[in-house]
Design a protein around this nucleic acid. Structure first.
Length: 154
DNA sequence: GCCAACGTTGGC
DNA sequence: GCCAACGTTGGC
């Protein structure tokens, strides 16, 4: 059982959008970074914990608790000619990009980036590392517990 | 294989 | 809109 933080732009898929989807589940399409892909393809397992994070918005931060809801499978958007995520070098036989399904467990209060940064026990979070741009980052079990507690305290 | 140029991310 | 940081591309 591992834990992850996954960034989504609320203008694209917000926590409320996710809640409204069938079974509150979305295929995590569109990742085009090899490190992030490898996390999904090689390390994620159904049941892994996910912090659903809003990025590129007015109030960046954790907005929900989710979980990995499928094994990895090819991202269908790589095969869509003309689409934003089309990859001409990918084929059905040799897909390049993978995704997992992510299911919302519950929405949370917004745990802001500023609050994460300020917390002494979260200084080592990969999300907060200088220059981090990865859209998917591992979260340690200790960090996960601290964040669960912060969310329960309100 | 080096590395400059370019594009993207994402907080502010 | 700015810009720091980083990944990718492509000429050599």
């Amino acid at each position: 059982m591992a834990y992850w933080l996954m960034k989504s732009e609320p203008g694209d898929v917000s926590v409320d959008d996710l809640a409204a989807m069938p079974a509150a589940t979305v295929g995590w399409y569109g990742v085009r970074n090899y490190q992030a892909r490898n996390f999904m393809r090689d390390q994620m397992r159904p049941g892994d914990g996910v912090l659903f994070y809003h990025s590129s918005c007015a109030e960046p931060g954790v907005a929900g608790i989710a979980e990995v809801a499928s094994p990895p499978y090819p991202d269908p958007t790589q095969f869509e000619p003309g689409g934003r995520y089309h990859d001409p070098k990918a084929s059905r036989e040799l897909p390049r990009w993978f995704q997992v399904d992510v299911r919302l467990v519950h929405k949370t209060r917004l745990l802001s980036l500023a609050e994460l940064r300020a917390h002494p026990d979260l200084q080592e979070m990969r999300l907060l590392a200088r220059g981090n741009r990865l859209s998917i980052t591992p979260v340690s079990a200790a960090e996960w517990r601290v964040i669960q507690r912060l969310l329960q305290e309100g």
